[in-house]
Amino acid sequence: MERLIQNVDHVQLPVNDMNKAISWYSEVLGLEPFTVYPHAAWLKFGSGPVLMLHYSTKNEKTSWFAEDGLPMPSFMFITRKISLLHSILQNHNVHIRQYEDHGFGWVIKFVDPFGNELGAYEPKEA
């Protein structure tokens, strides 16, 4: 059967201040904006899908809850420098929900200034 879906093109997050969001994602996470409009901005990672920040005044955010009631990120970033990421997040007073070794690698879960639940992990080398 032919695949109808090729891959993930971009992930969208709601934000209520586009300039603040672009600055935060650029300065804190190191993403590179490449297309910016008043209602949306696209930012590049090192590879893979792009991140789209979408302007919304509906006070919505991306999150869901695990069975234990903890908020969970909708997607996870991958990094090879999780301890540096942890330090940068701390230096920017980002709310960090979790930072620990999960066996398969180190995991960090944190919240952007708009309430979006985000996460990253550094896989252990085989």
Rank of each mutant, 00 (worst) to 15 (best):
P14L: 07
P14F: 07
N16W: 12
D17C: 02
M18D: 11
K20L: 03
A21E: 01
A21D: 04
A21Q: 07
A21Y: 04
I22K: 08
W24S: 01
Y25P: 05
S26K: 15
E27Y: 06
E27A: 14
V28C: 02
V28A: 03
L29D: 02
L31H: 03
L31V: 01
E32A: 08
P33R: 03
F34M: 13
F34T: 10
F34D: 05
F34E: 10
V36T: 11
V36H: 07
V36L: 11
V36M: 07
V36N: 06
Y37W: 11
Y37T: 04
Y37L: 04
Y37F: 09
P38H: 04
H39P: 06
A40Q: 12
A40F: 14
A40N: 06
A41Q: 04
A41V: 00
W42P: 03
W42E: 14
W42T: 06
L43G: 08
K44N: 14
F45G: 09
F45A: 15
S47T: 01
S47A: 06
S47P: 02
G48N: 13
P49F: 09
P49H: 05
V50I: 06
V50T: 07
L51C: 02
M52E: 15
M52R: 10
M52D: 00
M52A: 03
L53K: 09
L53C: 10
H54I: 07
H54R: 15
H54G: 00
H54F: 11
Y55D: 02
Y55N: 01
S56R: 10
S56W: 05
K58V: 05
K61N: 07
S63C: 11
S63E: 12
W64K: 10
F65D: 04
F65W: 11
F65A: 10
F65T: 13
F65H: 09
A66K: 12
E67K: 13
D68L: 00
G69W: 01
G69R: 05
G69K: 02
L70P: 02
P71F: 05
M72D: 14
M72I: 03
P73N: 05
P73S: 10
P73A: 09
S74R: 14
F75K: 03
F75H: 07
M76N: 13
M76V: 04
F77I: 01
F77D: 02
I78E: 10
I78R: 14
T79L: 04
R80D: 14
K81Y: 09
K81R: 12
I82L: 07
S83A: 15
S83R: 02
S83D: 13
L84G: 15
L84C: 13
L85N: 04
L85R: 06
L85V: 04
H86S: 15
H86G: 11
H86Q: 10
I88N: 12
I88W: 08
I88C: 11
N91G: 00
H92L: 01
V94C: 09
V94S: 04
H95D: 05
I96C: 09
I96Y: 07
R97Y: 11
Q98I: 11
